[in-house]
Nucleic acid binder design. Sequence first.
DNA 1: ACCCCTTTGTTGGAAAACAAACATACTTGT
DNA 2: ACAAGTATGTTTGTTTTCCAACAAAGGGGT
Lengths: 207, 207
Amino acid sequence: MTDQEILTILHCMDARVKKMDRNAYIFRAGESTEHMGLVLSGSVLVIQEDLWGHRNILAKVLPGDFFGESYAATPGSVLNVSVVANEDAEILMLNVNHLLTTCKNSCTHHNHLIRNLVSVLAGKVLQWDSKITHISKRSTREKILSYLSSESIRQGKLAFDIPYDRQQLADYLSVERSAMSAELSKLKKEGILDTQKNHFVLRGIPE
Amino acid sequence: MTDQEILTILHCMDARVKKMDRNAYIFRAGESTEHMGLVLSGSVLVIQEDLWGHRNILAKVLPGDFFGESYAATPGSVLNVSVVANEDAEILMLNVNHLLTTCKNSCTHHNHLIRNLVSVLAGKVLQWDSKITHISKRSTREKILSYLSSESIRQGKLAFDIPYDRQQLADYLSVERSAMSAELSKLKKEGILDTQKNHFVLRGIPE
DNA sequence: ACCCCTTTGTTGGAAAACAAACATACTTGT
DNA sequence: ACAAGTATGTTTGTTTTCCAACAAAGGGGT
C-alpha cells in the first residue's frame, strides 16, 4: 500500500495513538469497547484480577500484536479482562466497527483488512488453546513443563527467553509463586532444565 | 439469500455432510485441516486427552455452532485438540480456505460470509476467555461456582440446565470428579445451590 | 420385575498446593 | 559505595486435591 492508502485506512478506523505510563489501565473489566489496541512500543498485560489480589495473566502483548479485538468485534459484549501497561507503552487504538461496517469511502482495502482480522482472531484462539492446555494440567510441575516445552518448540530452540518474570509466570500458569519456585529448583536439581532469570534451557529427561 | 445463492456458496466452500457415530473422531490432535465443522444434529466435544486417561473438555458444540474454524483459518497450523461425536451427529464440513481466497465465481456473498466468520471467531475467543476464568480459580469450589454463576447469568435465570454430566463437568473444569462431587454435596448442605442431574438452582449466599 | 451397566456420591490415606514468613540475591537511585 | 526496594529462593504448617475403592442410585432392555 502507498502511504496515502495507509493514511486513509487509519483515518477510516479512527486511529489514535495513546501513550500509557507503566501500570496505567488501557481497558478495565466491565467496560465495553469498539476499539482494539495495537502495541507500538513497550508491552501490556491482559489480566483478570479479584479483590483479594489474585491476578491471572492471560497474555503479554508485545509490539506488533493486538489486544481487545474480540470484544471490539462483538457488539454488546462486556470486557471480562483488564489491560494494563506493563511498562511505558505507545498504543494505537483502532475502531473495529468502522472496519466491519462498510465505510462510505468504500476503501478497497477494507476486505483485505478484514481478512487480516480473521487471521488475528484465529491466531488468538490458537494462543488461548495453548494456554488452556497448560493450565489444565493438574500439577504445578506439569504446568511448568507444558508451558516451557511449548515455548521451546515455538521458538525452535532448547535455550530461550520467556516474557515473564517469576511472579508473572506464576500468574500466567495460575499457581503459587513459591510452589513454582520450589518446583523449578527441583527440576534444576534433576537436571531437566536450567534457568537464570527469564532465560531457560531444556535438557530433556536423561535416559 | 435465495436457495440458489446458498447452494452456490455451499458449493464454493466444498460443503459436505458427514454422519458420525457416537464416539467417532471428527478431528484428531496432530492433524491439520482446511475445513471447519458445523453441527447440524447431535453434539460434539472438543477435547484434549493424554495417554493416562486425563481428558480435558474444552467445549461442547451444539447444533448451529462451529468448531475447528481457527485451525482451518490458520494455514500451517496443527490441531492441538481432538473433536469427537458425543452422540450420533450430522456435521457439515466447510472449506475455509475456499472462503478466504477469492473464488473464481467471485461470489458476492463472500464478504458477508467472512464478516460472519469474524463474529464466530470473536465469539469463540470470548467463550475461551470465560473458560480460562473458571479454571484459573484455585480451588474446586471456586471453579464450580465461577462456572455455574456465569451459566446462570448467560441463561438469565437462577434455575438452568448445563450441557454436561458430572464426569464431563469435571473434565471441563479440570478437576477430579470425586472431589467435585464432594464439593457439590457441601454446597447443597450449605444451601448455596441445589442440583439433580444436570439441572442446577443457585440460591446465592444466605445473609 | 429383574438384572446389568452406567452414573453419581462417599470415604480415607497419600501427595501436593497454598499461604505466610523469612533468607538471599539482585536492582536502582543517590 | 551505600541503602532501600524488589525479585527470587527456601521452609514450615495447614488445607486441599488426588486417587482408588466402594456404596448407592438411576436407566434400559429383556
